[in-house]
Computed example of a mutant assay.
Amino acid sequence: MRIGELAAQAGTTTRTLRYYESRGLLPARRNGNGYRAYDEADLRLLRQIRTLQDFGFDLEQTRPFVECLQAGHPEGDSCPASLDVYRGRLAELDECLARLHEVRDRVAAQLARAELRVEAEHPGGPEPHCELSTNHAKTKES
């Protein structure tokens, strides 16, 4: 298949395919008339790259998976280098989640402190209204 067909089937652009080619991720084969020629294996390779990018992998992190496919493995993640990339990405995600949990805990603590202050300042009364509040503004207009 030609580059336009491959791009359409892979859900990407010809420009992206040329970029992958320049980075050595997509083989640059030419047929007799000089057009780039691709096959189903190239489509599978592109789908692997797209899936990994959807998971947040950068383009360079996809290289071991591409090389694994090109080496003839039916799945791009069955090689040791691919597994190492998975492990590294999982460690990055775990670290990110830990940071998010820490921030969430700090925001929750700040909210609790703010609610205590509001209750102390207005015991049993209604919550204070902001002048910019849409409900308050509608009340003033009525």
Rank of each mutant, 00 (worst) to 15 (best):
R2K: 10
I3T: 04
G4Q: 07
E5D: 11
E5H: 11
A8L: 10
A8K: 15
Q9W: 09
L17Y: 01
L17N: 03
L17S: 01
E21C: 15
E21P: 10
S22G: 13
R23C: 15
R23W: 12
R23A: 14
G24K: 05
G24F: 06
L26N: 02
P27M: 03
R29M: 03
R30F: 05
N33S: 14
Y35T: 02
D39A: 14
R44T: 08
L46S: 03
T51C: 09
L52H: 02
L52A: 02
Q53K: 06
D54Y: 06
D58A: 08
E60R: 13
E60C: 04
T62Q: 01
F65V: 01
V66T: 06
V66E: 05
E67C: 11
E67Y: 04
L69T: 01
A71M: 10
G72C: 04
H73K: 10
P74S: 09
C79H: 02
A81S: 02
S82A: 08
G88W: 04
R89S: 02
A91R: 10
L93P: 01
D94F: 07
D94N: 13
E95Y: 10
L97Q: 12
E102C: 12
V103K: 12
V103Q: 12
R104K: 11
R106T: 02
V107M: 06
E115N: 08
R117I: 09
E119I: 07
A120K: 10
E121I: 04
P123G: 06
E127A: 14
E131W: 14
E131G: 15
E131S: 13
L132K: 13
T139S: 15
K140R: 15
S142L: 15
